[in-house]
């Protein structure tokens, strides 16, 4: 497939936004149970605003992917069948709740709604945060399922796709949270940094697993099934459009095999290895966390590029980029 920059940014920005929120809310949950010192509302509030910024960035990027952005509102219609539709619903829903969550923190309008038998006060923000968490995961699933549900794209058609979207988004979100807290709540940095390391490690494992899996995939469709001729030697002589067509533009990354091969270690280094090192060092020198996040985000962009480029669409059998 040809990686579209709108989609690369869309998925990575959303992932970071979702991850950041999850980090904040994890913190709030810890704090609720007294495992961590509660932070000022502004910490969660501004953190949510930052997450919203990323999500909005993703939203904007998504419009670049649409031929007819003015009709984008229509895309919620098919939630019964379409993961894209579901994503379109999940995203604003998540953003809305997240907004309320952040606003509630910032405005101080955070009444206690329930008091649990143990005397634990459940505030509005906590309820909102819980809903937002569910939505964040729903959004991760929707986004990932957009790809994972396409059974012809066998590189994507795997639970690993969903797991990795969650892990990769969360990793970058937690890293960002570490950066954020490094600035506004230095005492909490190691909490976020620690989790970021754990999730990045998991993401590394998940992504490596999918790389291994994909490397062993055997194409299910072949030239023989594509045109229905039983012969081991079939060569396409012409694809019917010498100047190219939508099918040659959309489904081919047009980069060399060497480029593709080089990008893999690059993103593994940038998204996982280097950030892990920097996150670890960041425990002592918080300034490195910023670098960790930036490199990891770039790594994830590369990862996403590779994610698309690696997927071989069966339609390509009909368009072997010859004459």
């Amino acid at each position: 497939m040809k990686p579209a920059f709108s989609v690369i940014f869309l998925t990575t920005l959303l992932g970071t936004g979702q991850g950041l929120f999850l980090a904040l809310f994890t913190h709030q949950s810890y704090a609720l149970f007294g495992l961590l010192p509660p932070q000022a509302d502004s910490f969660y509030g501004y953190g949510s605003a930052l997450a919203l910024l990323f999500l909005a960035g993703g939203l904007v990027a998504s419009f670049f992917h649409l031929g007819r952005p003015e009709r984008a509102w229509r895309s919620a219609a098919q939630w019964r069948t379409s993961w894209l539709s579901r994503e379109v619903i999940a995203l604003p829903a998540f953003m809305g709740i997240l907004f309320m969550y952040g606003a509630s923190h910032l405005s101080g309008l955070d009444p206690v709604l329930v008091t649990l038998p143990g005397g634990l006060n459940i505030n509005a923000t906590f309820i909102l945060g819980g809903i937002a968490t569910a939505l964040a995961f729903a959004l991760f699933v929707c986004t990932a399922m957009i790809y994972a549900c396409l059974r012809f794209l066998r590189e994507w058609h795997s639970p690993l796709t969903v797991i990795n979207y969650i892990l990769l988004g969360s990793a970058s979100g937690f890293t960002l949270a570490a950066v954020f807290s490094g600035i506004v709540a230095p005492s909490q940095t190691n909490f976020f940094g620690g989790w970021a390391i754990i999730i990045t490690l998991l993401a590394f494992a998940g992504r490596s697993a999918s790389l291994l899996r994909n490397a062993r995939l055997k194409p299910k469709s072949t030239m023989q099934t594509a045109i229905g001729i039983k012969h081991p030697h079939i060569v396409q002589m012409s694809q019917g459009a010498m100047g190219g067509s939508f099918n040659t533009r959309e489904f081919f990354h047009a980069k060399s095999a060497t480029f593709l091969r080089a990008i893999k270690p690059t993103f593994l280094l940038l998204a996982f290895v280097i950030p892990l090192v920097l996150l670890a060092l960041g425990m002592f020198t918080p300034a490195l966390l910023g670098v960790a996040f930036i490199l990891q985000y770039i790594g994830l962009l590369a990862e996403r590029w590779f994610f698309f480029a690696e997927a071989k669409h069966p339609q390509n059998l009909y368009y072997q980029w010859r004459s």
């Binding site: 649409l66 007819r68 894209l84 669409h313």
Partner: peptide, 18 residues
């Protein structure tokens, strides 16, 4: 149609053109 091209990804035959 919003031109999201998602359907083309779902068609194994390359039968749609944007």
């Amino acid at each position: 149609c919003i031109g999201c091209k998602y359907c083309t990804w779902a068609c194994p035959y390359g039968a749609r053109e944007f």
